[in-house]
Nucleic acid binder design. Structure first.
Length: 567
RNA sequence: GUCCCCGUAGUUCAACGGAUAGAAUAGGACCCUUCUAAGGUCUAGAUCGAGGUUCGAUUCCUCGCGGGGACACCA
């Protein structure tokens, strides 16, 4: 990765110029409040990435005239070393140039002290072959060093089918797992089923099943209940558990067949935690460690000693355990299974639970990394059109049927998890026709059609012929993929992926416009075919990270044709 | 009352403290004899308000205003 090379180069140059090669000391002296603990506690992932890159930051300037990469390093250390940023930059510039003259077209110093790097055409040309060698592995990294990582997501209550809110968790979890895997983590996708027979939720579901209540009653559940042959004398807990199992089977089928999401592990609260006595053992463990106490007939956990605002009940006065206790047991189980990194994806309504879990994991003495991503809620606007029920939630399945999986995934992924997402079904439908995903897929289809026509076997690495600005821009854009994967694996900002994909498609479309691939010039044709192949590789890899298909043909061709005829 | 998330073009969204705040879509003007025009080029359009920190703030801090969520012996 060029970015890594640049970081090392600037570091070496700084040492040669007898400048500090890290920002830490200067930064910490100047900016103690900036990375205050509260914020770090909330954003551990960002903190981690910040820490990893604390030394020197290399940017991709938005403006092309500012170079391919740039660094503000000189500006950052100027105050600490009491030299003007421009002077520092000049020192660094000459050292860097003498260290790696081949890498750069030029290095510019710009007010107030930016160093802008322009990568040489030769270096870029040589990268094309590297991309093709790596193929579907292009962009993959060893950032994670096979660290055992657990990504738990969706974990919807088994009281009904998935709704559009669950879609956010589904797609973000799935794609995050893809990204982490690509970044070299050993990822397990996990789904937790809240099906404990002693839980109020399941008991209530049981009542619904036995016709004694209707808290969870829906059209869907009515049909489900009818389809099961209920034995008499079933307890409410047993009935609820049975019904939950039925619901869960549907959810699993939906996920695998329609959403193309496969979980590695399904954890049943009832079977894997309660029946294996893990909840009980966890309580015993807490008692032993003196982390719980009795008050007002209930058992409380000392979470306030581990950063939470207050203590919470883990065993009710009635003797029943709370959700918190089983969740502590669950996390203990994850830790015991050897995960070095644990990622939970929860809805915003679980916000308050974050502190509890962080405290709990602290009590358990976990040495790894726990990140809890809190997704803001998805709400509806104009939902009644699509809902099969009166005035109720919209099923995820209906949305997918309506706009298609690719458009749905793209639609969800484009939004930061922190922002409140309002789905206007009418708008989503309308926008699905103009979804940028088609723009991206079209680029892929174009590539395929060129390759089909040209017989790609003729492609040869005659890279020095690739000198057109649009060609070089395309190569630069391709080389961005590993950076995108690295950044996203570090900060979990998944929207970076669709935006990168659109950018990549755009650069390709421009190239397509500017550079005729198949032409009389046979050598140039071969060289360009080679480039097109590598573009296909990067594009396909990007799409597959998002779980979006990479079509060979553009499905809307006929639509377009009729449109043209009309005008 | 306390805590969390958000407030950016008409609209849906971007922007690790960086340079002229980007896309898409809607609007205006162009480009098919060419590998698929679901494409390309040009144009117009935005940071909720007031302070502060900084060489530099959409981003960090404080206070307002507005929207959403959470404050259980529910999950």
């Amino acid at each position: 990765m060029i970015r890594d090379e640049l970081i090392q180069l600037v570091e070496r140059a700084a040492r040669q110029a007898r400048l500090p090669a890290r920002l830490d000391s200067a930064r910490q002296a100047r900016l103690p409040a900036r990375l205050d603990s509260a914020r770090q506690a909330r954003l551990p992932a960002r903190q981690a990435s910040f820490g990893a890159r604390e030394e020197i930051r290399i940017d991709r300037p938005a403006e092309e005239s500012h170079g391919d990469y740039s660094t503000n390093f000189a500006l950052q250390i100027a105050k600490a070393v009491k030299i003007s940023p421009q002077q520092i930059a000049a020192h660094l510039q000459s050292h860097i140039l003498s260290l790696r003259p081949d890498l750069f077209e030029k290095i510019e110093i710009v007010e107030p002290g930016f160093i802008n790097f322009f990568i040489s055409a030769k270096y870029l040309q040589n990268q094309v072959a590297t991309i093709l060698e790596k193929k579907e592995k292009f962009g993959h990294l060893n950032l994670g060093r096979s660290k055992k990582t657990n990504v738990e997501f969706i974990s919807a209550n088994p009281t009904g089918p998935l709704h559009v809110g669950n879609g956010r968790s589904a797609f973000s979890g799935d794609v995050l797992a893809n990204v982490l895997a690509a970044a070299g983590y050993k990822v397990v996708r996990e789904y937790f089923i809240n099906d404990a027979k002693n839980s109020k939720q399941i008991i209530e579901l049981g009542k619904t099943a036995l016709g004694k209540g209707e808290v969870y009653l829906s059209e869907y559940l009515k049909l489900k209940i009818q389809s099961v042959r209920w034995r008499t004398k079933l307890t409410e807990g047993d009935a609820g558990f049975l019904l939950a199992k039925e619901v869960q089977a549907d959810t699993k089928a939906l996920l695998e067949k329609k959403l193309k999401i496969k979980f590695d592990k399904w954890i049943s609260e009832e079977k894997d935690l309660y029946q294996k006595n893990k909840v009980k053992k966890t309580l015993e463990w807490l008692k032993q460690k003196n982390l719980v106490y009795q008050k007002e007939g209930a058992w409380w956990v000392k979470s306030s000693q581990f950063g939470d605002d207050k203590d919470w009940v883990v065993i009710r006065e009635s003797g029943e355990p709370t959700y918190l206790l089983s969740d502590i047991a669950y996390h203990k189980d994850k830790i015991d299974r050897g995960f070095e990194m644990i990622i939970d994806i929860w809805g915003a309504d679980h916000q308050a639970h974050v502190q509890k879990m962080k405290a709990a994991v602290g009590m358990l003495g976990y040495q790894g990394q726990l990140d809890i991503l809190v997704l803001q809620l998805v709400t509806l606007k104009g939902g009644e059109k699509l809902s099969k029920r009166k005035g109720q939630v919209i099923m995820l399945e209906d949305l997918i049927d309506e706009i298609g999986l690719d458009a749905a995934r793209f639609f969800y992924l484009q939004k930061s998890l922190d922002t409140h997402m309002e789905i206007d079904i009418g708008l989503a439908k309308e926008q699905s026709q103009k979804n940028p995903v088609y723009y991206v897929q079209y680029a892929h289809a174009r590539i395929c059609s060129i390759l089909a026509k040209a017989n790609a076997k003729n492609a040869k690495p005659l890279h020095d012929l690739l000198n057109h600005p649009s060609e070089l821009r395309l190569i630069k854009q391709l080389l961005k993929l590993p950076e995108v994967i690295e950044d996203t694996a570090n900060d979990y900002q998944l929207q970076r992926l669709p935006y990168y994909a659109v950018e990549l498609a755009m650069v390709f479309h421009q190239f397509y416009q500017d550079c005729q691939v198949i032409s009389e010039d046979k050598k140039l044709t071969q060289a360009r075919l080679f480039l097109v192949l590598s573009a296909k590789t990067a594009l396909k890899n990007t799409l597959s990270l998002m779980g979006v298909s990479a079509p060979r043909l553009c499905p809307g061709k006929n639509v377009a044709a009729t449109l043209i005829k009309k005008t």
